[in-house]
Amino acid sequence: MPLRAPLPFLFLAVLLPAADPGDPPSPWDQATLGLIREAYRNFARQAGPNREARFGEAVTLLNLQPKTGANLDRAASLFTDIIATEPADGLGVSARYYVARIAHVHRTSPDDATALRIYRELADLSSPHPLAQRALVQLALMEIFEPRLDPAEVRVRFERLTARGAALTESSAVRDFHLVMGDAALRFNLGEAIALDHLLAADRVGLARAATQRDTWVRIAELGRRTGRNDIAVTYYQRFLENFPRDSRRRMIIERLAALLPTSESSREHPQVEVTR
């Protein structure tokens, strides 16, 4: 039965003319568009001595459908060759990161120990490459959120990673590191003021997506209110209201803002605020 379903489509694919492809994009462009099979074929054709094409072949093998262990083994082998040629240049660092990713998220049974080891090596490189710096974000996720840890050990790890985070320079890594640390500080009761400082640091770098902005700004405002830093709370409640005119939290935010602002200012800026609730 499962075999029968695609048969009509295969039949039609043979009979009917194919869609006009237009100008063929580069394999990297194809990969950005999610055209993994096409990108893989093009990389595989160019591979051989071309190191970038071998990297492209490996990185497309990670998501070539159907996803198989053999494809992941082949990708890992290609990455290993790339690392063997030069482990510390852009492609070498990227290949090391992706070997860790294979162990961490691509295999059916994750190998966290291998992933951790490689992430640690990458973080120790002090390379400006975005994926080398990303390794510290992964370390924070794996080390602090490790299940069944003693709370004291969580704090030790948190403080150790906080110190290492100061060395990050790549903007996405800085932002994401602080997002993770802020969340961890809140989840593991390490201090609302600490969580607030991390989230403010993330926001200073610039949040990339509206969805992250919405939630992080509310979080910052709430933490500001709870820690007595009302100026921060007011700023971020107002920023949220100005930027997100359609969100189910607006009424509650307006009310919380009203409770923080002097009545006259509140009614001037948000006429519909009811201070009496």
């Binding site: 990297w28 462009d29 990969a31 950005t32 999610g34 993994i36 990108a39 970038e52 990297f55 492209g56 990185v59 497309t60 990670l62 998501n63 852009g90 990227s94 992706y98 990713r101 998220v105 691509h106 975005p130 994926l131």
Partner: peptide
């Protein structure tokens, strides 16, 4: 995990294309 893993390929592509 599937969603996150899927993003690894376009991520590599954007990093290379940005360079």
């Amino acid at each position: 995990a599937i969603n996150t893993a899927r993003q690894d390929t376009p991520l590599a592509a954007h990093i290379i294309l940005h360079e």
